[in-house]
Simulated scan of single mutants.
Amino acid sequence: MAKVIVLAGPSGAGKSRLAERLGLPILRLDDFYKDGDDPTLPRIAHGPNQGLIDWDHPDSWLPSDAFRTIVELCEVGTADVPVYSIPDNGRVGHRLLDLVGSPLFVAEGIFAQDIVADCRAAGILGGAYCVTQQPIVTFWRRLVRDLREHRKPPLVLLRRGWALMREQGVVVTDAVAKGCTVVSPPEGYVLITRMLPAATGHDGSR
C-alpha cells in the first residue's frame, strides 16, 4: 500500500514547486474545488471583495472527494481525478493518475491540512507539512503566478493577495493544529527526500 505526503500552506508559498522537485506522483487538491455555479460556495462578507466567491474558504472545495481519491491511490495505485481550471471556475476534464508502483505520492493544496487527520486514522499518512515563506515573498510570488495564469482580474488579485498576506499566520496556525510540521521549501525538500531512499531507491541527490 502506498502512503501520501501532504503539503499544506498558504497560496503561493511554494507547495507545487516543492512537489515537482521531489519527483513523486502529485495529486493536486485544487482540482477538487467546487464548480463556480455551485450554490453552496461561500461568499466574502466584508472588505473590498465583498460578495465575491471566497475561494480561500474551506467550504469552497470537496474534501470527502479528495480523501476518497487518496485512499484509492494508496490501495489501488491508480485513480481517475478531475482537472480543474481556475480561470474557468470549473472542471474541464479528468485524467488518470498512476503511481507507477511508487510507494509515496504527494497531495498538495491550500486546504490539504483538512485531510491530514483522516489520512492518519486510515494509516496512509507518510508525512504532513505546512510550507511557508515570509509573507511578503508569498504575496509577490502568488501575485506574479495569478497574473501570469489570468486567474482573476488584476485588481481582484491584488486585493485578495493583500488580505491573504495579512492572514498568513492564521493559515499556518490552523495547519499546525491539524497535524502539519512547518517547513520552508528547502527544509521540506530535505526532510522528505530523507524518506525516499528506503521507499523508492531515490539517492537524495538532485
Rank of each mutant, 00 (worst) to 15 (best):
R91V: 05
P25L: 11
H150R: 15
G201V: 05
Y189I: 15
I136E: 15
R142E: 00
H202I: 03
D54H: 07
Q168S: 08
K34I: 13
D203S: 09
G23P: 12
S102P: 01
S205K: 11
P48E: 14
V182I: 02
L191D: 05
D118K: 09
E72S: 10
V76F: 07
L18E: 01
A122P: 04
A199M: 08
G90L: 03
D80H: 15
A163Y: 07
S205L: 13
D35P: 11
N49W: 00
A198P: 09
D59S: 15
G161H: 01
E72V: 12
L99Y: 10
P58I: 06
V116Y: 03
V144K: 09
L155W: 00
I110L: 05
D31Y: 09
L7I: 13
G204M: 07
L41N: 10
D203Y: 11
S85F: 04
W55T: 03
I53Q: 03
A121G: 08
P58T: 04
G12I: 02
A8W: 01
W162M: 11
S205E: 08
S64W: 08
P197E: 12
V83I: 15
D114V: 11
Q50A: 15
G179K: 07
F32I: 08
V137Y: 03
A163W: 09
L99Q: 01
R21V: 12
K152R: 15
A177I: 02
V176Y: 03
A2M: 10
P58D: 00
M165T: 02
G23N: 00
L73R: 02
L22T: 02
R142Q: 05
I115Q: 01
V81N: 05
A121W: 01
R160L: 14
A8Q: 00
Y84L: 01
D203E: 07
L96H: 11
V76I: 14
H150K: 15
G188N: 02
R148P: 07
Q134I: 10
L157P: 04
L97N: 05
D80V: 12
V137S: 12
D146N: 07
A19F: 05
G169P: 06
V172Y: 03
G12A: 08
D31N: 13
K3N: 12
F111N: 01
G90Y: 04
W61K: 01
R21I: 14
T173V: 14
S184I: 08
Y33W: 13
R68D: 14
L52G: 03
D174V: 09
E187D: 13
R120I: 06
Q133T: 13
T78E: 12
A177M: 11
S11K: 02
A122Q: 01
G204V: 10
P87V: 03
I5Q: 01
S205G: 10
G14S: 09
L155R: 10
P10V: 07
R151Y: 10
V137P: 00
D54G: 09
P103V: 05
I70D: 05
V131M: 00
